[in-house]
Design a binder for these strands. Sequence first.
DNA 1: GCTTCACTTAGACTATGTCTAGTTTAGACA
DNA 2: TGTCTAAACTAGACATAGTCTAAGTGAAGC
Lengths: 144, 144
Amino acid sequence: MTAPTPVETQLRDAGLKATRTRIAVVAALRDLGGHQTADEVSTALAANDAVVSRATVFNALDDLTRAGLVMVADAGPGATRYEWADRWHHHFVCTSCGAISDVACPEDSPRCVDAPGVEGTVDDVQVIFRGTCSSCIGPGAETT
Amino acid sequence: MTAPTPVETQLRDAGLKATRTRIAVVAALRDLGGHQTADEVSTALAANDAVVSRATVFNALDDLTRAGLVMVADAGPGATRYEWADRWHHHFVCTSCGAISDVACPEDSPRCVDAPGVEGTVDDVQVIFRGTCSSCIGPGAETT
DNA sequence: GCTTCACTTAGACTATGTCTAGTTTAGACA
DNA sequence: TGTCTAAACTAGACATAGTCTAAGTGAAGC
Ligand SMILES: [Mn+2]
Ligand SMILES: [Mn+2]
Ligand SMILES: [Zn+2]
Ligand SMILES: [Zn+2]
């Protein structure tokens, strides 16, 4: 039994068991980088000889999100995209090609924007910038 | 042929034909209010003796969104929610019960927040506040 | 080392959205 | 007003995303 890594500690602090699967999912997201779907995570785990049931990947991502180890990048329709919760940030989504890129959060904090008139408690604030990315504007813009 | 309503004009200005279906979809969203899924719109149309193919409802909502007559309320997984694009605003999503409520946009403009360092053109900015709504906090909070 | 309950599993099931090929229609123009 | 044609609509098959259930497994408290 090795010394508990930070991830294991974070899990237990959130009242979750530090299972092989959850640790592998966090590692996969951190290693892959970017914004991954549940099925992409599943594939990455399988490639690492850590086959995990599809339902479990969805459950793990959900649990990890609530525990704050993983964040969701809202980007409209299609599969939900997850990423390792390193630093809080926002997203730019290209409505032409679907690409998602990070936008730094000026405050580096999940509650960076004030919420006037909200009836309830605000946990975090996500800003989604939508538009056309530079590759889609440029000379070689894809119309597909 | 009656005089063109504003909606018909808006459609033609966007290069779209002012069809019976599209007009009915906008009317349904305006009359229903709130944040509706494609299937809820479909049901509302049917109740109005205006049965429309499911694929057409999806297409119409997509076209109307691009034309600026309808807006999407991003709210995480689940069906995409549409609403009549009256005034630009943001959303508060309760992570406990899933309720979506409007949050006024201080600037009343789709480009209310500055996007530092984005590689491309920003068309609009949506802010999503996530947390727990007052009914879910209050004494009679549902755990379901 | 036990015990227990949270976790994981396979796979059926539901929900959400897309595609295609044939038909209809809005709106341009004569 | 009648004709024409690209755009829009249709039904329904298909694809993708996510949920549920009941039985087996393992992390962690003792
Ligand atoms: Mn990101
Ligand atoms: Mn709204
Ligand atoms: Zn792009
Ligand atoms: Zn609530």
